[in-house]
Write a protein that binds this DNA or RNA. Sequence first.
RNA 1: GCGCCUCUAGCUCAACGGCAGAGCAACGGACUCUUAAUCCGCAGGUUCUGGGUUCGAAUCCCAGGGGGCGCACCA
Length: 469
Amino acid sequence: MTDEKIPYRFERTASTAAVRAAHPDLAPGAETGDIVSVAGRLMLRREAGRITFGELRDSDGRIQLFAGATWTDDYERFKDLDLGDWIGATGEVVATRTGELSVEVRHWQLLAKARRSFGDKWRGISDVDLRYRQRYADLWANEASRDVLLLRSRMISLTRRCLERRGFVEVETPLLHTLPGGALARPFATHHNALDMDLYLRIAIELHLKRLVVGGIEKVFEIGRVFRNEGLSPRHNPEFTMLEAYQAYADYTDMMELVEQLVAHLATELCGTTKLTYAGRELDLAPPWTRATMFELVARHAGVAVDLTTPVEELRRLVADHAIPVDESWGPGKLILELYEKTTEPELWGPVFVLDYPKEVSPLARDHRTVPGLVERFEAIVAGRELANAFSELNDPDEQRRTFEAQARAKAAGDEEAMAVDEDYLRALEYGLPPTGGIGIGMDRLAMLLSGVETIRDVILFPTLRPER
RNA sequence: GCGCCUCUAGCUCAACGGCAGAGCAACGGACUCUUAAUCCGCAGGUUCUGGGUUCGAAUCCCAGGGGGCGCACCA
């Protein structure tokens, strides 16, 4: 059905919120003489013979439309409007006898017809498949979905402002990489026809941003999509949004301060407090967050004191005791990490900074300044989840080449997530990377935390799904 | 990839081996102050798909598909 009467534009003079703000306390039956034009979607309609009430919603809120046979143009057609139709309406701002602020509709225009029904006007849409596939219907029908969208938008905006205030410069670096690097993950592969070469969707932003620090951009960040070819879960989507920030002359302790300040700031701005409840448990994001080394935490939660001098056979036995299949190639660092992930990480609620990871599992982090075999790295655990990962960045090109080569050997031995040697990145390091602290924050998980939802699909507008049918 | 759960009208849900139903939306009608308006009427179905068991299947069984959760992988 095409309607030749649908206009190309509509001269709106006020949003519903503006009308409300201009007339805060009208007495029942009041007439204001204020003529406004409002526009939006018809949410509800109550017909009572020769008068009809409608509820119009725009992006600011809602307002009642008051139409009547004696004063509304084309009243019979107004009565026939369907819920979901977009209309523009012009008339005087009044209060009805019961005191409801209304626009007394004199003229109105259909702006778009809703040919499909949006579902139950009271219960909305709860079928999760329908909500994710037809997000447009979900957003119309479910206020909670709109709230999450708006919170996420404000969160990203506040994050940018917070970093800019600290002097960080926002950049955009390639999503198409010739070598996937900067994280341990399987990439999506694609192909460039003109150059006849394989390309990979980036799995991290890291290596490009550190190149920029080499180039003299002392504080740099990017908020962007990264892609990992992995399974889906309530906490994983194949494409997700990462914040990465790098700061010259800083180390991982500076990054801890940055994370806790940023997250506490966002909570205060978006939730009004740092004391949140998530998944029924309390969480206080006020700095400073607890700091504890991985080995301390393993000792506490696994009940066994281990470190890199613990005999490998003993570590293997401990790991095997927790029903983890042991790979022959694992050294003590990887074994302790496995033990930590199985026994300790699930017990952590946070916020807590888990400090000082084995070098074996951290090829881009700099050696710990006092403990051999460890690197200066932390993960921030918040609400039982890994929210951030950060290091004092490895800036010695020779040492970086050695860790890359160890990764390349693991890759050759069949580890699909291991890194390759990135010669251009090594060349950049040879120009000199100053001492640098770097941080990566999963913004989707942060949005989940701040909006209180428990599945990542609720904070991603169009999550990855199988095709229909 | 494996395990468990789930799929009924546009939406939200009943019926759980015995005639497929309700509310909302839609459609027709009544009503000049409603607030999820109300009231009267009417219509709406490949019960996800395909097999099977049975006198009889939405219901039980098998296979496939979509979705959810868990495991594994990861942030």
